[in-house]
Design a protein around this nucleic acid. Structure first.
Length: 250
DNA sequence: TTGATTGTTACCGG
DNA sequence: TCCGGTAACAATCA
């Protein structure tokens, strides 16, 4: 990520212009991510908080920079590069207190070394909410989005409608390890890859197992389409059976 | 021009 | 208090 000296900050367009000016001339020491939130730490205990949401993009270019493309909210300029932040849901300047509050309300981030899986399991194993919904709740576990949800549950043979409290410790541990590996690959390759051996130059469909597909790569059975919290989800009816748990009553 | 989309939050009602 | 549903917002591309 971006770490180093920012010698200029401009906000060519949009409603964040006044906030961006605060960063002008400050040094940026650390860029850190907590789940899907990005925090850039500047001089004077000032943080630039960014969440890209569904559509946001970060683009890096060498100097000399071209004109900003699209809705650039903040442009960070160093001696050698510019970084444009396009269309984020959140793009704000905050102080340490707000930054700490933010971190507190985010669940353990799968790919951070300081993540505590027990904290996530503690909550999930007590919840009547389905695991499909819990995985997208960033205050439970941070990092998983809509595509990873479908793909990881398929890899773990867990039906998304399984109640959180029906997930066993063993299942959770296996899920955590797998999810962590997949997200780490995703960061490294800058792509969502959930198949074990994707072709070198793959298309989106070749990197995924069942998301947006009709047929299960393992059993060749049909893939069912669901909506969970209004988002598309997919499930293999054979490989991810919904296990009834007689001890649980809903 | 329309629809879909790797996301989040506020608000309301049961 | 918990939980589900809906709307709002965002930018881009096919």
């Amino acid at each position: 990520m971006l770490v180093g000296s920012i010698i200029d900050v401009t906000s060519p367009q949009g409603r964040f212009a006044s906030g961006a000016a605060v960063l002008d001339g400050r040094e940026c020491y650390v860029a850190e991510a907590y789940g899907k939130h990005l925090l850039l730490h500047f001089d004077g205990e000032i943080f630039l908080h960014i969440h890209l949401g569904l559509f946001g993009r970060i683009r890096k270019h060498k100097i000399p920079a071209k004109d900003p493309r699209g809705a650039v909210r903040v442009r960070l300029v160093s001696a050698t590069h510019v970084v444009d932040i396009n269309g984020p849901t959140i793009c704000e300047i905050i102080e340490r207190e707000s930054m700490e509050k933010l971190i507190c309300r985010i669940g353990p981030d799968l790919i951070r070394d300081d993540a505590d899986p027990d904290r996530a399991y503690e909550r999930i194993s007590k919840s009547r909410v389905t695991i499909g919904k819990l995985l997208m709740d960033q205050s439970e576990i941070a990092g998983i989005g809509n595509i990873y949800r479908t793909e990881i549950l398929w890899r773990q043979s867990i039906h998304p409608d399984t109640a959180g409290r029906a997930i066993t410790r063993r299942q959770f541990e296996s899920f955590w390890t797998d999810a962590k590996e997949l997200l780490t690959i995703g960061v490294k390759r800058n792509a969502i890859i959930t198949v074990d051996d994707p072709p070198a130059r793959s298309r989106v469909g070749e990197r995924l197992n069942i998301f947006n597909k009709a047929e299960c790569p393992t059993c060749a059975g049909p893939i069912a389409r669901l909506k969970i919290n209004g988002r598309r989800a997919f499930v293999c009816v054979n490989c991810q059976p919904l296990v009834p748990n007689k001890k649980l009553r809903v």
